[in-house]
Design a protein around this nucleic acid. Structure first.
Length: 928
RNA sequence: GCGAGAAUAUCUAAGUGGUCAACAGAGGCGGACUCAAGAUCCGUUCGCGCAGGCGUUCGCAGGUUCGACUCCUGCUUCUCGCACCA
């Protein structure tokens, strides 16, 4: 008998599986599932493990159910992150080196090669494949590709041609974070500071200063009516500049920023801030106001000039108050213009005074400002004389009016500062031209997506609202980039197609990936793909035979049945791919995606898994330490796929013990040769419902539920079975069939162990391809199940009484309820009206004779029926068991359990006082 | 802030109007087996109870109902997303 050695099982299985999961079209019905491919920029951790093991379990399940299953995998290497990583490694950035050398354990000589971004993704793609294989993923690796393969790029070009022709690709301008030293846009991972910063759109209010404009940037243009002054910082150097030919005064920093935002800027002279103080400016909507001094004015914030609305902005209010307390500008009064519930006439004053704020240095000022802004935005209304509209409406209207009539322009600025590039330079907002967009805002396109979404299966169903919301909310998506890896954008080859935009219909590419690999990219024209995927014939197609084979393969597999992905991709990738599908396969509704399964996130010891924080457990280490089956079973059993899960080493260890217990049990009983007993009928009957429930759970992707049934359900039954076997009896030869079923039910979860056991049992072929068990209705034996239920409940009752009375029993008497109580049981259980049933019973002459006994019994039986599960009460009435027979047959068992003689008597014949409490399915128990 | 989801006993976690003191697993405790440990098996794990029972629980506070873990309202806390990033 062989030992339980997972590592050995793994070795054996890998040998057998080498090419086993390569899947070609056949006569069988197909089942095509795929999972969002990884971006291999680092090592896999256990969180990734679940992402890929869930679809593998599903793939293995359907394979055993006789489908031709396709489970492919590829690698997404498009984008900028690895470019940044390679630069950082070249620059010997200690944090990056630490992550890759110490955490991901990249050998030094390989690490040195990482200065080439392609080397990074190639290295980790190989590692992913190795670890995925180690986990037992039943992937068809022939179809593997990476997204910068020239043939793939040809495919993407074809896809984009269709998007373009459908009018979904448009050109425009777009504000981005930009580093003027690197002369490039910067992504999150290129930032030293401010990675959460958002670009905000400010309205510049143009105050007139002689023949010059002084622009003030604001988020609240509607407050123009309440402006009492401007603020300038006396210690800041401003400049007079010709902006688009007109003279402006702004801070030096602002002038630089404006130059990046579609303005021609020509600096004429520097102006000390001090010289602006006490000068007058004017605006048609607020008249003439003075410029006052304020230290808080940040030259690096927007234009470097601020308009002051002391009635509604706490900062403005308190700055003015500070000045006035010093005896200056006493004639300036706040001008309120918004009424907001919960605040007085002058909300900023009200709030500042209520909070007891002494001066502008108070740390609570930011929170207070936020509070007033929110209150006024959500609940505030302009005064009647300014139109009386709610703030949220007026704000946009005034902004539009300003732009139209009063020379206002837009200026972009970050909401949080500073934003600093890894090179140390301050990041600015630049408007990029020649920026291309996917027009997700197009209502007609959205409609197509919504229509198809209705026909898709979404798991779990709760995510549907998230999808619907995403479709409604999507705006145009900037789909080209200047840096990174990827496919060149056909209409501007200086640019690349952005990563989320080149990975939307690649599930179709999988179907032909292994066949197109060796073709010359040059011949892969759009016409070729039109033929393969859309069946469009055209003259002079090259290698027609190959194309036909690919067309056939595509038609066999497509559409995919299920796509798996983590839930954070709903708001982009998962929705994008529907957009792209409905366009590319517009006239082939039957090629559109059928379903999606969305995962929860992974935690490690209760905390979020994060490579950058070092809180990760590498999948390869987990497989090494615990075995692949253990990792699989733990990840599948600890939560359903869409729930978040928590990896804890100590829990994983007990999972390993469970697998070992399963293994040992099977090895022990598979060759049992005893004669079958009654209890075998029971065990076989139970097994059928475990088969049914496991199957139903996996049909619904409930891996946890399936494991509960297939593992613990059967294990618990076996325990009871062994307990019930007569003394000195081995299990019966029928256990062999149970083992065969059990191994197959667990095979999707722990394929290594089951593959080994299957061989031990001399099962035919590989268990990975063995037929999935089907419940056999003929083996369902309700009566046997009821009998065991009765017995188990009685044993439980005896135990609980024994524990309470704490005497050493000499004998146990089980007194069975008389026939008339069974009759009452039947009447109550089947009664349509529970309220009148007692009356009905008492109509019976024989019952009436029993008087109070009968009504008491009826009451007790009502309670009892209430407490019995429907799976017991119903069958019990339809097909009652003979309690006498059940207990007589189990007499030996009971005596063995309790170690004393057990007597079985009829309650009324026994003459025992306690016996009167006997009820159907609940005999009276007397312990002496 | 907005949108979505969640909160159950020591932990993980099932449960969507009466089958519920609440499936299952893990861990703890007690016992059997054993020279011993592990494995295995049995019992126990909210409180009380010398007869199978009773009492109090399912984030917090209210409400609907004969009856609520389950429905409604408000609150608190946590997770995910809110874009040009894979």
């Amino acid at each position: 008998m062989s030992e339980f050695t997972l590592a050995k099982f793994e070795e054996e299985a890998h040998e057998k599986w080498a090419h086993a999961f390569e899947s070609d079209p056949s006569d069988l019905e197909k089942f095509y599932l795929n999972v969002a491919f990884p971006y291999p920029s680092g090592a896999m951790h256990v969180g990734h493990g679940r992402t890929y093991i869930v679809p593998d379990v599903v793939a293995r399940f359907w394979r055993m159910r006789g489908k031709q299953v396709l489970f492919p995998m590829a690698f997404h290497v498009t984008g900028a992150p690895v470019v940044g990583i390679s630069k950082r490694i070249a620059n010997k950035d200690p944090k990056t080196i630490h992550l890759y050398r110490d955490l991901y354990r990249v050998p030094q000589n390989v690490l040195e090669e990482f200065t080439n971004p392609l080397t990074i993704v190639r290295h980790f793609a190989a590692e992913y494949q190795r670890v995925m294989t180690a986990c037992g993923l039943s992937i068809d690796w022939r179809r593997r590709f990476i997204t910068v393969d020239p043939t793939y790029s040809k495919f993407i070009e074809w896809q984009w041609k269709h998007l373009y022709e459908a009018g979904h690709v448009i050109k425009g301008a777009h504000p981005v974070r930009f580093c003027t030293v690197d002369d490039n846009p910067v992504g999150d991972h290129d930032l030293l500071e401010g990675d959460k910063a958002e670009v905000i759109k400010f309205t510049m209010i143009m105050f007139r200063f002689g023949d010059t404009f002084i622009p003030c940037a604001t988020l609240r243009p509607e407050t123009i009516h309440g402006v009492t002054n401007l603020w300038a910082n006396p210690d800041v150097t401003y400049v007079r500049a010709l902006v688009d030919g007109k003279a402006w005064i702004v801070s030096k920093e602002a002038a630089e920023k404006l130059a990046l935002q579609d303005h021609t800027v020509e600096i004429q002279e520097e102006i000390p801030g001090r010289s602006l103080i006490d000068r007058k400016v004017s605006h048609p909507l607020c008249g003439e106001v003075p410029i006052l001094p304020a230290d808080f004015v940040d030259p690096d914030m927007a234009s470097g000039m601020v308009m002051s609305v002391p009635a509604h902005a706490p900062f403005d209010y308190i700055a003015l108050r500070d000045l006035q307390q010093a005896g200056k500008y006493k004639n300036i009064k706040p001008i309120p213009l918004i009424r907001v519930e919960g605040y007085g006439e002058v909300p900023a004053q009200d709030a500042v005074e209520k909070a007891g704020i002494k001066n502008q240095m108070d740390s609570r000022m930011d929170a207070l400002t936020q509070e007033i802004y929110s209150a006024e935005f959500s609940k505030g209304k302009l005064f009647e004389k300014y139109g009386g509209k709610p703030v949220r409406v007026a704000r946009d209207e005034v902004a539009a009016l300003m732009a139209e009539k009063y020379d206002s322009v837009v200026m972009y600025e970050f909401d949080i500062r500073p934003v600093v590039c890894r090179c140390g330079n301050k990041v600015k907002v630049k408007i990029l031209h020649d920026q291309w967009f996917l027009k997700y805002s197009d209502p007609a396109w959205k409609q197509q997506v919504s229509d198809h979404l209705k026909d898709m299966t979404l798991v779990p169903p709760e995510v549907r609202v998230e999808f619907d919301r995403t479709v409604g909310w999507l705006k145009d998506w900037a789909c080209t980039r200047r840096v990174g890896l990827g496919t060149r954008f056909p209409w501007d080859t200086q640019q690349l197609i952005e990563p989320l935009s080149d990975s939307t219909i690649y599930m179709a590419y999988y179907t032909i990936a292994h066949k197109i690999r060796d073709m010359d990219p040059k011949i892969l024209t759009p016409e070729v793909f039109d033929y393969i995927f859309l069946g469009k014939k055209s003259d002079d197609l090259p290698e027609k035979k190959k194309l036909d084979a690919m067309r056939k393969e595509f038609l066999y597999w497509y559409p995919y049945d299920f796509r798996f992905s983590a839930k954070d991709l709903i708001s982009n990738h998962l929705t994008f791919q529907i957009f792209h599908h409905v366009t590319v396969f517009e006239n082939n509704k039957n090629l559109l995606p059928k379903g999606m399964v969305v995962f929860g996130m992974g935690l490690l010891n209760g905390a979020k898994m994060s490579s950058s924080k070092g809180n990760v457990f590498l999948l390869e280490d987990a497989v090494q330490e615990f075995g692949a089956d253990t990792v699989r079973m733990f990840l599948m059993g600890s939560a359903e796929p869409w729930q978040d899960f928590d990896w804890r080493n100590e829990l994983v260890l007990s999972t390993k013990k469970q697998i070992e217990r399963f293994y040992n049990t099977v090895m022990e009983i598979k060759d049992a040769g005893g004669e079958p007993h009654d209890i075998d009928r029971w065990l076989a009957s139970r097994l059928q419902s475990h088969i049914e429930r496991t199957t139903a759970a996996l049909d619904n992707f409930q891996t946890r539920q399936a494991l509960q049934e297939a593992y613990f359900g059967i294990e618990t039954d076996l325990k009871w079975y062994r307990r019930r076997l007569p003394k000195d009896c081995d299990g019966s030869r029928e256990l062999r069939e149970l083992c065969s079923v059990w191994i197959r039910l667990l095979s999707p979860f722990i394929p290594f162990t089951t593959e080994h056991l299957w061989k031990e049992m001399a099962g035919e072929g590989l268990v990975s391809f063995a037929p999935w068990p089907v419940a056999d209705a003929k083996q369902v034996n309700t009566k046997a199940e009821l009998a065991e239920e009765l017995l188990a409940r009685t044993v439980e009752d005896v135990e609980s009484i024994k524990k309470l009375i704490q005497i050493t029993p000499k004998a146990i008497t089980i007194a069975l309820a008389p026939a008339w109580k069974h009759e009452i049981f039947r009447m109550i259980a089947t009664a349509s009206d529970k309220n009148t049933v007692v009356k009905e019973i008492m109509k019976d002459e024989k019952m009436r004779k029993r008087g109070k006994d009968a009504t008491d019994a009826a009451k007790q039986i009502t309670t009892l029926i209430h407490r019995l599960p429907p799976s017991v009460a119903g069958p019990l009435v339809r097909d009652p068991v003979s309690e006498q027979a059940v207990f007589e047959a189990a007499k030996d068992f009971l005596e063995q359990e309790f170690g004393v003689p057990v007597h079985i008597v009829g309650a009324e014949e026994s003459g025992l006082l306690k016996a009167s409490t006997a009820l159907p399915f609940k005999p009276a128990i007397v312990i002496e």
